[in-house]
Simulated scan of single mutants.
Amino acid sequence: MTLICRLLLLCFIPLAAMAEAMEQDIFLEAGDLTPEEFHWVKRPVLVFADTPADPSFLRQMELLRENPGALIERDVVVITDTDPAALSAFRRKFRPRGFSLVMMDKDGITTLRKPLPWDVREITRAIDKFPIARQEMQERFPSGR
């Protein structure tokens, strides 16, 4: 009996590793990235802070990691920037002060800025109201008209 349990457990390990790999693919550091890299490809959700120890930054990242699947469905990439001295392209463009959550649509337009952490549900509801996201949903799920 224990052999069967072990075999079943071994079957689920690759699935957990795949899920973790999928989650990691959407979390990037700003570094040398530019907004143009994501134009018409992904929806950048930017998380700024002056230090990686900022409590709002830590809370925001915790909230985002709770449900990465909903973000992946909406072509979101989470870009973090916790080094003001590095002056990333995103930091130069948005000029955040302290913690800031910035959402962009695929066309590169900044659609929302928030000074406090948001959970995935709030973020996905906001994204679902973006014009391009609405158009994508209509294309994915056309009505019978």
Rank of each mutant, 00 (worst) to 15 (best):
M1Y: 12
M1V: 11
M1Q: 05
L3N: 03
I4S: 12
C5I: 09
R6F: 12
L7N: 01
L8E: 02
L9Y: 13
L10A: 14
L10G: 00
C11K: 02
I13A: 10
P14N: 12
A16V: 00
M18A: 14
M18R: 14
E20A: 13
E20C: 03
E20L: 04
E23S: 13
Q24G: 05
Q24S: 06
Q24W: 08
D25W: 07
F27P: 02
L28M: 12
A30E: 03
G31L: 02
D32S: 08
P35S: 09
P35Y: 06
P35D: 07
E36H: 11
E37C: 01
E37K: 11
H39N: 09
W40Q: 06
V41Y: 11
R43T: 00
P44W: 04
V45L: 15
V45P: 12
V47P: 12
V47E: 14
V47W: 12
F48K: 08
A49L: 01
T51S: 12
T51W: 10
T51K: 04
P52C: 02
A53L: 11
A53S: 12
F57M: 03
L58G: 01
R59N: 06
Q60T: 01
M61G: 03
M61A: 06
E62C: 00
P68H: 07
R74T: 01
R74W: 08
V77I: 15
V78D: 07
T80A: 03
D81R: 02
D83H: 10
D83R: 10
D83C: 05
P84Q: 08
A85F: 00
A85H: 02
A85K: 04
A85I: 02
L87Y: 09
S88H: 03
A89P: 08
F90P: 11
R91D: 00
R91E: 04
R91N: 08
K93W: 07
R95D: 07
R97T: 11
F99N: 00
S100D: 07
V102Y: 04
V102E: 05
M103G: 11
D105G: 15
D105Y: 14
D105H: 15
K106M: 15
K106D: 06
K106E: 06
D107P: 08
G108H: 08
G108R: 07
I109V: 15
T111I: 10
T111G: 15
T111D: 12
L116P: 00
L116K: 14
W118G: 03
R121Q: 12
E122C: 01
E122Q: 14
I123Q: 13
I123W: 05
T124P: 04
R125N: 13
I127T: 01
I127F: 15
D128V: 01
D128W: 08
K129V: 08
I132E: 05
Q135F: 15
E136M: 12
E136T: 08
M137T: 10
Q138M: 14
S143C: 04
G144N: 10
